[in-house]
């Protein structure tokens, strides 16, 4: 029932995302332009307003939905993996690694032969990959993956990576690059292009379908590794798969949107409080709710300061957290 309502809300919310932007456009014009763009009837290059709809708002709205959905399902996976309600996609230092990668790239501190072959999103992805690899190596002991070590190493590495980002940003003599990095660290969908979407959508769908297929093992994992193992779950393999999936999805998404916090934390808990703890419902619910939330947050970020960019990370925190705290006040909420 709730999932059905969420799915039904996709079209109207996407419509809101398309209708309200930095500049005011008539809704009918937006609809007509969308229709013409889809059917190929409009020469986009000759109409600037149509270009705003088709080349800026549409990819931006789709990117927002994708990033929100992806970060939310990875939040679900991380919370199951470490059996800790505080977990989110960035808990394993992935966000810190991505930020450090972006900072080092912007400041020209990546070796030239590498920097010449990559761009900033790729640098962010490589940073995320480096961080999660280090955390994995530290957490692995005797062929097993220690969850407590995983968490501690993740927190420590996140702090280390944040220190790298802060140092290279502060020490940079180039104010333009410093500004760019600081803005990127707060997250934004401004400037997202069609060319960036296929990989992000593919990876998010891959992550979503894989996790949905793992719904039962994830339910078992929440009750403890031994219980899960006794139920026939290959716990170690599952943990490794979850880490790889988390690194892949988060790294790719962070590379197009910057670091957007809280979504992977508040959406899964909000969905659980409404739909229960079964991953069969929590995963699709979080996927859709996360996407909707991010589209609305991005729309609000454009509406709040017309003509200007307000980092969407600020909106997700300012709007999402009070709502989340209100949900937590409910006495019947449970994580496991």
């Amino acid at each position: 029932m709730v999932l059905g309502l969420l799915i039904l809300a996709i079209l109207p919310v996407m419509g809101v995302g398309m209708a309200f932007g930095s500049v005011s456009l008539p809704f009918v014009f937006t609809l007509k332009t969308l229709f013409s763009g889809i059917t190929g009837g409009l020469p986009v290059e000759t109409d600037r307003l149509a270009e705003i709809v088709l080349q800026i708002r549409l990819p931006r709205t789709l990117a927002a939905f994708t990033v929100g959905a992806g970060l939310s399902i990875i939040g679900v996976a991380m919370q199951a993996l470490v059996r800790n309600p505080l977990a989110e996609p960035y808990v394993l230092g992935i966000s810190g690694g991505a930020s450090a990668g972006a900072s080092l790239f912007y400041m020209g501190l990546i070796p030239t032969f590498i920097a010449a072959r990559i761009d900033m999103p790729v640098a962010a992805f490589l940073g995320a990959l480096t961080a999660i690899t280090l955390v994995y190596v530290v957490a692995r002991s005797g062929g097993r993956l220690s969850v407590s070590r995983l968490l501690l190493a993740g927190v420590a590495l996140a702090a280390f990576m944040a220190a790298i980002s802060a140092f290279v940003t502060l020490a940079s003599p180039d104010a333009n690059k410093t500004r760019a990095v600081l803005f990127w660290l707060m997250g934004s969908f401004n400037g997202v292009t069609w060319s960036e979407l296929p990989i992000a959508v593919s990876v998010t769908l891959l992550g979503g379908l894989t996790l949905f297929a793992l719904a039962r093992p994830l339910d078992a994992l929440l009750s403890g590794e031994e219980s899960a193992s006794s139920l026939g779950v290959q716990v170690e393999s599952l943990k490794k798969l979850l880490i790889v999936l988390s690194a892949l999805v988060t790294g790719v998404l962070v590379s197009i949107s910057g670091a957007i916090g809280f979504v992977g934390l508040i959406i899964p808990h909000s969905v659980r409080s409404i739909m229960g703890i079964s991953h069969r419902w929590v995963l699709p619910g979080s996927f859709v709710a996360g996407g909707l939330f991010m589209v609305l947050a991005d729309t609000l970020s454009q509406w709040a300061l017309p003509g200007q960019q307000l980092p969407v990370g600020i909106v997700t925190a300012m709007c999402g957290v009070p709502f989340f705290l209100m949900l937590l006040r409910r006495t019947d909420y449970q994580f496991k």
Partner: peptide, 12 residues
Amino acid sequence: PILDDEWVLLNN
């Protein structure tokens, strides 16, 4: 202000 791409396109 940090200019939004939409705004720049509209004002040309």
